[in-house]
Write a protein that binds this DNA or RNA. Sequence first.
DNA 1: CGCATTTCCTGGAGGC
DNA 2: TGCCTCCAGGAAATGC
Length: 270
Amino acid sequence: MPELPEVQTVVNTLQPLVGRRLGAVRVLRPDVLHGEVEDPAGFLCRRTVRAITRRAKRIVFDLGSGRQMIVHLGMTGHLQIEPSRAALRTHTHLVVAAGRGSELRFCDPRRFGAVWLLAAGTPRRGRGLGPLGPEPLEVSLAEFRGLLARSRQIKALLLDQRVLAGLGNIYADESLYRAGIHPLARSSDLDDVQVRQLYHSIRRTLRAAIRAGGSSIRDYRDGNGERGWFQQRLQVYGRTGEPCRRCRTLITRMQAAGRSSHLCPNCQAL
DNA sequence: CGCATTTCCTGGAGGC
DNA sequence: TGCCTCCAGGAAATGC
């Protein structure tokens, strides 16, 4: 479940690849590739990595001449730099030689992730490449207020990547808890104070999680295979039945937007 | 329009 | 120990 902080951490830890020239390509599972797929090896081989950046939950490799490789980790995706001599893990789908005896490897057991190879002018369409709202750490308070103007369940709205791009189930729950807002609250019913609290809760939660290297709930790892440690500081996610750290009321779990939602029923009254 | 449901997929957990 | 069922969820499609 890599969300914005986990993806940012992967991007940070992959920075040593910037300036390197890509080499031999092995496609072990062609169906994870999308876009310019006729000749993936020809697309990637001998390209220099100009930059590695993040947009929402997508990792963007700038390969020059308008070429991009975009990676979405989905739920269980890993993108790691590993020594070429290291054994391939099962469910490794793509391997690219990345210089100095290393390889960039994409491994994704559940295959909710994907890799797009996009030449200049290739249309950005299809599953996983849909339109994106603003970045939660870049949007202004005034813009954020505007996003909430339509009446929707606040949790569903926060998870909608077309509205705000980068939050997933963990950080949506954590942000709502910190703001004291129930997941089913109507976005348009929130008063000015609540909107401001939610805005700052999202920013603080994401920033703290990035500093902690993300949350390793199940199998998340960064670009070097290291775990994050923000999971130790989660307030509600995965804490069903445990006492709220603020008021000791037991954390409960409910369905919202088709996702399990964790909340303190006392701190987040509807 | 919003929202619940279903789909994709595999590993891990729990029941018996 | 082994087999079965359920559940986790990002994003999109479907139905109401």
